[in-house]
Every structure is written in structure tokens, then in C-alpha cells.
Design a binder for these strands. Structure first.
Lengths: 255, 255
DNA sequence: GTGCCCAAGATTGCATACGATTTGGCCAAG
DNA sequence: CTTGGCCAAATCGTATGCAATCTTGGGCAC
């Protein structure tokens, strides 16, 4: 069972799995629109927080029950997550939280190394003073989360770190690349939650600052270099070898 | 009505719109699996062939009726196309064939200019003699379609041209980039059908050959250069200005 | 004791039904 | 003749029911 699984693994915040997963959705009034989108967001957050362990089965009825919607709506949300690569959908079997292989993780970062310099190049041409201000606010927010401790802070920290890259994509003004980055950031967060070995963010944060400074100066080449290093650092903090040896046991345990 | 609309615009091949759109799906035996995928493919083909004009409404019931399935599975297919950007979905209004703006078209090609050199770089490291052989076969196929005339040949030609880029992505061995290219090729095909002014392919074909030759020699830098030129040429063949003046009328007419 | 088979339970795939929202036309007022 | 509002038809969003498929546990044969 979904509830039991997450509860047993993370007793600290186990006031009830239902509340854990759906905590962030305030269905109060306006959300008469597209509940499946809200559910997608909630599940997405739960996955990249690792509150839902890779391999966990997400049954349609269960998800539907958790959010008080029919299987139809739950199914739509799961389908969307399937497109993003955060869940794997097997016909007649159901949806499972993705368990990206080390190889896939490398491909994700290789893709980012390809795309993000392009985003920087576009962003440096279009970024405004207002944007910069917005970025600085965002980075302060990020810093705030880093100083806090506890699981929910770490969660906010990963999210904030990803948001920096998403804002960059937004400034670049290319909606297609923005969508790609959306997917890549989501998958990266999952991979970091899976294979990360430390608090990457303290170093990540200062790198974000450096990138922003370079952008402000209009030095796109420097910003690109910094971005590549940043991605390298994130990937270097991952532990992508070990699992290779445990592939068998791993598959046995939770695939 | 969907049928009437396409029939009136393309009388030449109007043996009946139903057959036109669903012609390629042979539901005979194996397709007990995921009919929505088959429908997605059929609609995708119809869209990039321009048998379905941009702005055309794709009603769930109508699509369902055409393929003899319920709205549920038709809806799933439309949702998938929405993710790919080939249709635009508006809440409580329905799904419409995308009408990408010139600006969006430029963003699509900008994305390709970013990603495809990366794919080349990865492919040149991994391509095998067998792959090369496969590519040559594919290019012969492409040539064959170019020599033929008629609407269905032009369709096969656009598809074959896109397949070259998809094969390249496949050889590169990065499933994420491969997925991105899938989307980009689909959207490019739509844009070419929309804004293309001539038979791009005759020149495109020789460029494909040149790229392959460079790859065979292991000259990734040269292959990348050729690829960028190739993309430039495709984009240069488009007529992205005119519509700007007609923006008002355009929005009025079929957005 | 081990391995295979089969039936019951659970879960997904799909179809259909019903309420909600939008649209287009009709009629009346200006 | 135009404009504004109201009503009906069409279409979407969602829930639910049924058939098909998969999983699992027990029983039987070897």
C-alpha cells in the first residue's frame, strides 16, 4: 500500500500519508479548473521529495481516493507524469514511480549540458533589470531554505534550486526550451534525491549567484562556463557507480 | 464538421475523410495494445500532412466515432498530441490543430540548432558500420519518394526527411534527447507544411548525404557545421514574415 | 518436499451516463 | 438595422459500471 510504504519509511512526518502527499493542494475555491493538474503537481512534489520511493506503485484507485476524485482524473494525472518521465506506466499493470538508472541520470545531465548554455545565450540578450531583481529575491529565498533544517526545508531547497534554472529558461523566451527544461529539472530532482550524497545546494547556491552576476554584466560566455561547471558539480555529487554492483539486488528490492 | 472541412479543402484525395485520416492504421490483430497510441499516430500524420488544417477542431466524440472507440480513448490520444504541441487544448472548449506562430516556428528551429549538434557529437562516437548501412538504405528510400509525385509522395517525403534526424538521435543513444527530437521533428513538420514554400527536400536530401559522409569519416565538427547549415536552409525556405501583417485577420479567421 | 496449475481477488482498459460550461441563434428593445 | 439578453444544442469534465487482464494463494500431482 502506498500509505503504509511511505509512512514506514519516513516516520518523522507521518501524521498520515494522505496529508503528507496532498498537503500542498489547497482546493479551497478557484481550483474548479483542472484538478488533475493539481494532483500532478502534488505527486510530482512527493516524488522529487522522495516521500514516494522509486518503484512505489501508484494505483489509480488509491490516488483517486487520496484526492477524492474519480479514477478518471487520477489516471489523467498519472498519464501526465508518465510523459514527464517521473512515473513509468506499464500496460495492464499500473503506474510506478520511476527508478532512473545511472545511465539515464547521465543522459539527463548530458542533455542539460547541451541545452542550458543555449538558454544562457538567449537569456543574456533579453534579461532586464527587473528580471535581475526578481532573481536576487529568488536567490534570497533559496538561501533562507538552506539555512533552515529539516526534511521540509530540504524539499523547499531542492525546489528553489530547480526554480532558478526554470526562471532562466523563462527569461530566455523560448517556450519549447522552457518545456524541455521543465522536464529536465523534474527528472534531475528525482535523480538527485535518488543518488545525491550530500547537501549540494550550499555550493550550488553560490554558483547560482555567480551565474547571475555574469548575466548582469552581460558576459554570456562566462555565464555559460559557470553553468557548465555548475552542472558538473551537481553530477559529481551523485553516486552513480555503486548501484551498478547492486543491480541485481536493486531490481529485486524495489523495481 | 471535421470530415466536411478537410474534404472541402482537399478534394483531390477526398474518397472520404474517414478513410483519409485513418487509412494508415491497420487494426488487424496485434493492435489490441493501446489503441490510443495508434490514433495519436494517425492524427499526427494527418496533421503534418496538412490533411487536417491548423485551427480545425478535433472533437472527442468525432475522433472517437472516426476510429470506432469511445471518447475516453480519443481523449487520451488528443491529450498526448497536446503534450507534443501538435494540438492546442482549451478547457471546456476542445482540441484544435495547432497553428504555430512564426515566432514559435523560429523557436522550434532555434531549439534544433541547439540540440542537433549535440546529437551529432554523440552519434559520431557511437555510430557503427551497420548504422551507416541502415542510413544509406533510408536515404535511398527518401530519394525514391522525392522522385515520385503526388500528395501522398510529398507526405512520405516529409516523413522520411524527419526520420533521418530521428535515426540520428537514436544512434546518439540519449533517450531524453531522442524524445525531444521526436517532438521537435513533429512540430517542424507542421511548421514546414504551414509555412514552407517549395520542395525543400531535394536540397535537404543532398545535405543529409553530406552529413552522413562526414559522420562516416568521423569528422564530427564538419558534420555539425553541415547540420547547422541544413537547419538554416530549412528555415530559410519558410515564409515567416507575411503572416505578421495578417495577424489580426489571422486570429480572427482561424485561431 | 517441490513444482505446477487453477481459481479468486484485485486492478486496469474501456464504454457509457450525467452534470456543467460554452456557443450560436432567436427574439425583443432601442 | 443594430444590440442585448435569453434559451437550446453541442461539447466537455467527471463518475461509475463492466469486461479483460494480471497477480496471488491454495491445492494437487509428482
Amino acid at each position: 500500500m502506498l500509505a503504509i510504504c511511505t509512512r514506514s519509511r519516513y516516520k518523522a512526518q507521518a501524521v498520515g500519508c494522505v496529508m503528507n502527499i496532498s498537503e500542498n493542494i489547497t482546493f479551497p475555491e478557484a481550483s474548479q479548473e483542472d484538478r488533475s493538474l493539481a494532483i500532478r503537481e502534488a505527486l510530482r512534489n512527493a516524488i522529487i521529495d522522495r516521500r514516494l520511493a522509486p518503484g512505489t506503485k501508484l494505483s489509480e484507485s488509491e490516488v483517486g481516493a487520496l484526492f477524492s476524485v474519480s479514477r478518471t482524473v487520477a489516471r489523467a494525472a498519472l498519464q501526465m507524469l508518465g510523459f514527464e518521465g517521473l512515473v513509468r506506466i506499464e500496460r495492464n499493470r499500473g503506474a510506478f514511480v520511476s527508478n532512473p538508472s545511472p545511465d539515464e541520470a547521465r543522459q539527463i545531465f548530458a542533455s542539460r549540458r547541451l541545452i542550458e548554455p543555449g538558454i544562457i545565450a538567449a537569456a543574456v540578450e533579453r534579461i532586464t533589470a527587473a528580471d535581475i531583481k526578481q532573481f536576487r529575491r529568488q536567490l534570497e529565498e533559496e538561501q533562507r531554505h538552506i539555512n533552515e533544517r529539516g526534511p521540509s526545508a530540504r524539499r523547499a531547497e531542492i525546489k528553489a534550486s530547480g526554480d532558478f534554472h526554470l526562471m532562466l529558461a523563462s527569461v530566455a523566451g523560448n517556450v519549447i526550451l522552457q518545456k524541455f527544461m521543465d522536464e529536465l529539472v523534474g527528472r534531475s530532482s528525482l535523480v538527485i534525491a535518488l543518488y545525491g550524497r550530500s547537501g549540494i545546494s550550499s555550493c550550488g547556491h553560490s554558483e547560482h549567484l555567480a551565474i547571475l552576476d555574469a548575466l548582469e554584466k552581460g558576459d554570456g560566455a562566462q555565464a555559460s562556463r559557470l553553468m557548465l561547471h555548475h552542472i558538473d558539480h551537481i553530477e559529481a555529487d551523485l553516486d552513480l557507480q555503486l548501484k551498478q554492483g547492486f543491480a541485481l539486488k536493486d531490481a529485486l528490492a524495489l523495481t
